[in-house]
Design a protein around this nucleic acid. Sequence first.
DNA 1: AAATAAAATTAAGCAAACTTAAATTAATAA
DNA 2: TTATTAATTTAAGTTTGCTTAATTTTATTT
Lengths: 222, 222
Amino acid sequence: MSTISKENYLKAIFIEEVERNSHVPVNILSAKLGISQAAVSDMSKKLANEDLLDYQKYKGLKTTQKGRNIALDIIRKHRLWEVFLTNTLGYNCDEVHDEAEMLEHSTSTKLINKIEEFLNFPILDPHGYPIPDKNGNFPNTREIINFSQVEVGKFYEVARVNDENKEVMNYLTKIGIVLGEKLFIENSLEFDKTLIVKIRGNSIAISSQISEIFSVSLVEGA
Amino acid sequence: MSTISKENYLKAIFIEEVERNSHVPVNILSAKLGISQAAVSDMSKKLANEDLLDYQKYKGLKTTQKGRNIALDIIRKHRLWEVFLTNTLGYNCDEVHDEAEMLEHSTSTKLINKIEEFLNFPILDPHGYPIPDKNGNFPNTREIINFSQVEVGKFYEVARVNDENKEVMNYLTKIGIVLGEKLFIENSLEFDKTLIVKIRGNSIAISSQISEIFSVSLVEGA
DNA sequence: AAATAAAATTAAGCAAACTTAAATTAATAA
DNA sequence: TTATTAATTTAAGTTTGCTTAATTTTATTT
Ligand SMILES: [Mn+2]
Ligand SMILES: [Mn+2]
Ligand SMILES: [Mn+2]
Ligand SMILES: [Mn+2]
């Protein structure tokens, strides 16, 4: 049986396994969910018994096809709610994540399909993450790279911003890193990978830690 | 702490205590929530300890001011969601109750206030129940009476239909008892209180059991 | 008023989802 | 390779919200 807790586990595991392209260590998930490792270990066994996780002791966690279907369903609900809150109700995009984190578990398939239609089938959420369709398929989107991978002398556009930490989001917004914003890479400092970036006419420095948490797409011939 | 379970208890108790105008017996709540009497008895103690219920052994249940505030908040969320599902997303009104029953527990104050504004501050839900405002006050509405109280020879308009039983709702819809429908009381059978009603040009019989589950308002000088 | 029935409570137990502490396994470093 | 550290699992215990069964209280009949 699927519960709120299990849905949160499956979603977090799926997102993490895709990013790492391999099994997710228990301690990573534990930190991400803010739940003890013992509890994660316990729950993993249960999810594996329900054929939702591929799990062997000490080998980390990965969703099965069945588990992935649930994860994608929750991700779809989460991201569509975020669009609804932003576009229809006028939320700021740093205020939608926590609401969506709750709503995603109280939303029937019928309801989310109606919301999707009402919103005119958006393909990206307010932070730039892609929204799976009702069959769990992601839309085709522009190629994006993490900001730490940019090259000096090129133009980029902010394409995706991490949405899980409000403090971080606020900081990014303050320095002008918001979805769709254009920027030019002026320089990269050798010793610590700090990037000097021209954005809205100002030159600012962006530390390597900050660079990790947002992504951009290349603006051709700019 | 307020949980989904406690919210459901408080809402059900409040609605029932208002209808009865007195404390709610444990067995009634038990039946209404589909939970054993033992569990209700247990939970009542906990809610009373949190000063949410006025409860003494064997004396039945009633919300305190504090409990009533929570109940009204949940009722407000429930009914506003029902309006949203019906008016904005095109649900039939017999399909909204179960969805709202879930959503009501995953909705922040901020969110429901935005929804209310988006819907232009409706005062009735799709079944004719009044929606409390953000201070927990009910709107002024037309006087309504239960259909079992109507008088022969008068015109009425359907003003409220029970929304908790889908089967019942479907039946009512089938015989034409839908919100706003006009009807004329032709006769009342002495022995079993069956009412003969002219509705949409047809005369139909409505049993006393059916009469109990919807309400009407008098149409003056019709 | 006593007997019976109904309602409510108490008792005992269970499953879910956590916790902390102890034990075990795996990874890393000397 | 052995010692140390880090990651993971197991064990034991808690809280919430239920269950059924037994007991007690209250209400209804006779
Ligand atoms: Mn989010
Ligand atoms: Mn969630
Ligand atoms: Mn309802
Ligand atoms: Mn509910």
